[in-house]
Structures are given as structure tokens and as C-alpha cells.
């Protein structure tokens, strides 16, 4: 194991003095590689805190550029970044927070052709995507590769968080077996979301990610945390591993990831 620099000891001192983290845990974080899929409402706050925490390598996946309507919630980007690729804008912010973090930009749309190669280079995946088709694709790939995925999703004033570890528990499709049919629901752009909500949910994801990397506490495996910002209430339900799951079930014939038709979501 490497030894800390003076700067690292000072920067991470509030972690290192925690018995549950210590020097050993901080070294684990520094040698960890986390892939953030989506540099939007969920990925932005998660990336800020994972970078500050000293997660050594952060991979960022996003194809889009920063738009004005993003800035109400995507706090890693600033007004000066308008028009920049999100992965570049996020990288510059991360490097300003913690130059010790290595950032890998994946400016692309995740597809069946690239997903396995991209996730293969990381210890943990954080799902901050904004549509069902990418979530389905990413889940298939994580099941195939045996990668743990920290799930978060938001809609209007509500959020959901869970941890999908295909080796020990259910996967995303045990929870959402089928996509809402296209056209059954208004489009993402029409839906609206309270700006702080993905901040809350993205940071719950980051919390789970850090716990998993450190191997401490009780992760949300098999548990779905529901957050209602209007009532300011949380509750929890169980997600069981579905023996008939189309992705991880005993008869699932998943050999390679596939692309799913785009369906923009919402409900009501």
C-alpha cells in the first residue's frame, strides 16, 4: 500500500480520524474506480462528493452539452460552462475541488456496442441516467459483468434509491420488469423536477457508493428507499430477487447487452 502525502493527510483528516474509515479506508477510496453514468441532476452532486471524498478515479459518461435549463439542478456545471460537453465541464469542476482525482471522460451515448468495455474498467457503477432504455441497458451489462450498481431516480418531487448487486440480491429488472410503453406518458422535458430533489437522491447514491467501497454499514441491497419531498417522508419497501427476472432470473438468456427502444417516462 502507498503512503499518504502531507497534503493527503490534511485533506482527508476528517475521514482518517473516523475509526470506520481510517487510513486503510481512505487508501481504499483513493484506489477505487467509480463510473458515473449521466452528468445530470443525480450525477452532478454525486460526482462532487465522490471527488471531495478522494475516490481515486471517476469515469464520467454523458453525450450532452450544458444547457441553461440544466443549471437549476446540475450543480457541477456553471453558467460559464454553457455549450461545453458535460463531461468536460464536470471534469474541470472536479479538478478544481480535488486535483488528486483522475477523471476519465466518456463523451458518448451508452449502447450495447460500448457498455461492456466501459463498465469493465470500474469497481462500481452509479446510475444517474434519465431514461428507461439506458437504465435497462446498463442493468443488463451490470448483471453480465457482475458489477454493483447504485440506482437513483427522480420524478417531480419523489425519488428512489437502491443498490443492485446481482451476486447477492435483486437487479433493476426484478424491480421494473417492463418499460412503460412509449406514448403512454408525457415526455421527460414536460415532466419537471424540483431542483434540489436530485441533489438529495444523488447524495444518497454517493453515500451508498462510499459505504460499498469501504465495506461498511448496511447497503440498500434488496431495499428500495422512497423519498417524498412534499411530505418530507421516507419509507422503505423490499425488492426481492425475481426467479423469473428477464435479466438475472434462472431462465434468463442474457448473453450480451441489447439496446432497448427509447421510452420517455412518467406517470399520471
Amino acid at each position: 500500500m502507498f503512503s499518504f502525502t502531507e497534503e493527503q493527510i490534511r485533506r482527508y483528516s476528517r475521514h482518517i480520524i473516523l475509526p470506520e474509515v481510517g487510513g486503510k479506508g481512505q487508501r481504499k477510496l483513493l484506489s477505487s474506480r467509480v463510473l458515473l453514468v449521466g452528468m445530470g441532476g443525480l450525477g452532478s452532486p454525486a460526482a462532487l462528493y465522490l471527488a471531495a471524498a478522494g475516490v481515486g478515479t471517476l469515469g464520467l459518461v454523458d453525450f450532452d452539452t450544458v444547457e441553461l435549463s440544466n443549471l437549476q439542478r446540475q450543480v457541477i456545471h456553471t453558467t460559464r460552462d454553457l455549450g461545453k460537453p458535460k463531461v468536460l465541464s464536470a471534469r474541470q469542476t472536479i479538478e478544481a475541488i480535488n486535483p488528486g482525482v483522475k477523471v476519465l471522460e466518456h463523451r458518448l451515448r451508452l449502447s450495447s456496442a460500448n457498455v461492456m468495455e466501459i463498465i469493465g474498467g470500474y469497481d462500481l457503477i452509479l446510475d444517474g441516467t434519465d431514461n428507461f432504455s439506458t437504465r435497462f441497458l446498463l442493468n443488463d451489462a451490470c448483471v453480465l459483468a457482475g458489477k454493483v450498481c447504485v440506482y437513483g431516480a427522480v420524478f417531480r418531487f419523489e425519488g428512489q434509491v437502491s443498490v443492485f448487486d446481482p451476486k447477492q440480491g435483486p437487479c433493476y429488472r426484478c424491480f421494473v420488469p417492463e418499460m412503460p410503453p412509449p406514448g403512454s406518458v408525457p415526455s421527460c422535458q414536460e415532466a419537471g423536477v424540483l431542483g434540489v430533489l436530485p441533489g438529495t437522491i444523488g447524495l444518497l447514491q454517493a453515500t451508498e457508493a462510499i459505504k460499498l467501497l469501504l465495506g461498511i454499514g448496511r447497503p440498500l441491497i434488496g431495499r428500495l428507499l422512497l423519498f417524498d419531498a412534499l411530505e418530507m417522508e421516507t419509507h422503505e419497501v423490499r425488492i426481492r430477487k425475481n426467479p423469473d427476472c428477464p435479466a438475472c432470473g434462472q431462465d434468463a438468456r442474457l448473453e450480451e447487452p441489447r439496446d432497448y427502444a427509447h421510452a420517455c417516462e412518467s406517470f399520471g
Binding site: 441516467t129 428507461f132 428512489q160 436530485p198 412518467s266
Partner: peptide, 10 residues
Amino acid sequence: ISVVPAIAGG
């Protein structure tokens, strides 16, 4: 009884 629709926003 809790009714929980799938959501996908991010």
C-alpha cells in the same frame, strides 16, 4: 398498501 410507479428521471 403503497403504489410505486417506476420512474426514470435523473
